[in-house]
């Protein structure tokens, strides 16, 4: 099981995957937006999205869990 964490404080601009989706390592899961900069958050390992912890428009802090992949 892998906890995918935000690496920057900002807003969730786009959620690219759905709960239950299979993702490959390096695949974009969500895109965070802050101060005019978009940062994609990629899966660190292949697996299934067990839980999505955020929705579009949510505010996340650096280190917050975005999704759980297993």
């Amino acid at each position: 099981m892998q906890e995918l964490k935000a690496n920057m404080t900002g807003n969730v601009w786009k959620v690219i995957v759905n709960q239950g989706d299979k993702v490959e390592e390096g695949q974009e899961v969500v895109i965070l937006e802050s101060m005019k900069m978009e940062i994609p958050i990629e899966a660190e390992a292949s697996g299934n999205i067990k839980e999505l912890k955020v929705g579009e428009g949510d505010f996340v802090n650096d280190g917050d869990v975005i999704a759980i992949i297993e």
Binding site: N7, T9, G10, M35
Partner: peptide, 13 residues
């Protein structure tokens, strides 16, 4: 800039 000095990622707060 309010940002990380290595990655240049924004750091609001």
């Amino acid at each position: 800039y309010a940002e990380d000095p290595v990655r240049f990622f924004p750091s609001p707060g």
